[in-house]
Design a protein around this nucleic acid. Structure first.
Length: 469
RNA sequence: GGUCCCUUCGUCUAUCGGUUAGGACAUCAGAUUUUCAAUCUGGGGAGAGGGGUUCGACUCCCCUAGGGACUGCCA
């Protein structure tokens, strides 16, 4: 009965993709998936200064990494300039727009006057035909905003929002150089792309009024609008670099999983009862724009960490190992053994419960990929008393004979060994830990031994016993 | 200045006129302990203020205060 939903994300290439933009993309994606509709991408590259090939690529990369794949080919706004111009001409022909020969300075002065008079800018040129002096002179084309009445935006999250027309200025549609302005381009493109639901940041709410005016003047159906609350920084201010992260790339570098970011972002400004941690399938099944919250939300890394940890726990270990490996190799410049990937795969399931990010997962699994002989930290060296050395040597024998090389089996073996030595585990644990890990974090000893394997474990212990005297 | 939006624990939120105002993160205390975590148990913590409407308001209306967006020949 109702036409299929079409949503879109329309970022402009600025060199990075803001996380707020990413959330808009997510909500559009979720809503399209939820309704079985389409999610389109339009690159707003009309600002030729900033629109480099590289910054366009950032948009593709950011969305791809986030797992928000768009349907069909992306639309490039700049390429549609002739269509935009035709729309302006239609507006001109219908009397909804006019040529304005005011200079920038004159327009500024007039805005001041209008403001003082209690209304927005209305150019004298709206009812004046260019004379011989103006013919051929540079000028802009402005929209003829109605003087009376209100423009109403039926917003899915904010309800009915009315803008008095007298307070909406005769905004520019086409610049002196013949290129069109944002509001015109967006309206024409959204219409041509068949967009049914415009879901975007709250900063566009007042543009919703101007665009509604354009849709009506052009004789088109107005799409459903839904304006999302802003994402704020920890201090409640606008999210910026000083808050630690603001672009999709930042979050990626900090070691967040795309599904973790999706989950957290979805929770930021939208909710489904008490559900906090969920999969994409659940989010898609539950999502609806009418459930979006109105107030701006602060980005909280503690909560993000918690959400991300949940997704790391349920992520595939091979995938995690493949993500952690380059961090260790390329970011930390560590020399890795040939079987590094296999070692990481063995270690990750033992340590991932405590990892909030991939960076932490790298810290926690670092012990596993160290190359023998390990450099020992001072604390461990201090622990290697003659007494302890004797015990470790005897432990090596016990390990050689171990027939249950599993975390639990080895845990039991250690307990039994400590007992046979007549001491508590605390007497041998710290030294063994240091010798096995080289001083970095490692899981409990049974798990550490199990993940390292018999040869590597015994080798590391013997290295310590022989290399240090 | 004008227009518009917003306002429940520190943070994200639930509540859709009747609840001891619920949950999550964070925090605090305890348990556990071979590092760091993780885990378990328990605790503290909220309706911006003022008026209405109503038998009854966090919930509806108005005012004030505070925060934010827009007010570009940027998007």
């Amino acid at each position: 009965m109702s036409s299929p939903v079409v949503t879109r994300i329309a970022p402009s290439p600025t060199g990075s993709m803001h996380i707020g933009n990413a959330r808009s993309a997510l909500f559009n994606w979720l809503y399209a998936k939820h309704t079985g509709g389409k999610f389109l991408l339009r690159v707003e590259d009309t600002d030729r200064e900033r629109s480099t090939e590289a910054s366009v690529q950032v948009i593709f990369d950011s969305l791809t990494w986030l797992g928000l794949m768009w349907d069909g080919e992306p639309v490039f706004q700049f390429a549609r300039a002739p269509i935009h111009k035709a729309a302006v001409q239609r507006l001109l022909d219908a009397g909804h727009a006019y040529h304005d020969y005011l200079t920038v300075a004159e327009a500024d002065a007039l805005k001041e006057e209008s403001r003082a008079a209690g209304h927005a800018l209305r150019s004298p040129w709206r009812d004046r035909k260019p004379g011989p002096t103006e013919e051929g002179k540079p000028h802009v084309i402005r929209f003829r905003t109605p003087d009376e009445g209100d423009t109403v935006v039926e917003d899915k999250v904010r309800g009915t929002v009315r803008f008095p027309n007298k307070d909406i200025e005769d905004f520019v549609l086409m610049r002196t150089d013949g290129t069109v302005i944002y509001n015109l381009a967006v309206t024409v493109d959204d219409h041509d792309m068949g967009v049914t639901h415009v879901i975007r940041g709250e900063e566009h709410l007042s543009n919703g009024g101007r665009q509604t005016l354009l849709y009506k003047a052009l004789g088109w159906d107005v799409p459903v609008f839904a304006h999302l609350p802003l994402i704020l920084g920890k201090d409640g201010g606008k999210l910026s670099k000083r808050h630690g992260a603001q672009s999709v790339g930042d979050f990626r570098e900090m070691g967040y999983l795309p599904e973790g970011v999706r989950n957290y972002l979805a929770k930021l400004g939208w909710g489904h009862g008490d559900d906090e941690l969920f999969t994409d399938e659940e989010a898609i099944a539950w999502f609806d724009v009418v459930d979006v919250v109105k107030a701006g939300a602060r980005l909280d890394f503690d909560k993000l960490n918690h959400v991300n940890n949940w997704h790391i726990r349920r992520a595939d270990d091979t995938r995690l190992a493949e993500l952690v490996l380059p961090i260790l190799r390329d970011e930390r410049h560590l020399a890795l053994p040939d079987d590094a990937l296999a070692r990481l795969e063995a270690a990750i399931p033992l340590v991932k419960e405590g990892a909030k990010t991939l960076q932490e997962l790298a810290d926690l699994s670092l012990y596993a990929i160290k190359v023998r002989p390990l450099a020992l930290d001072d604390k461990t060296i201090g622990n290697l008393t003659d007494e302890t050395r004797g015990r470790l040597a005897r432990l090596v024998e016990a390990l050689r004979g171990a027939n249950d090389w599993t975390p639990q089996g080895l845990q039991d073996l250690l307990k039994a060994f400590a007992e046979s030595e007549g001491v508590g585990l605390g007497k041998i644990g710290p030294a063994l830990r240091g010798v096995l890990s080289g001083g970095v974090q490692a899981p409990d000893l049974g798990s550490a031994l199990a993940s390292l394997g018999r040869d590597e474990s015994i080798g590391r212990i013997q290295d310590a016993l022989s290399h240090l005297r």
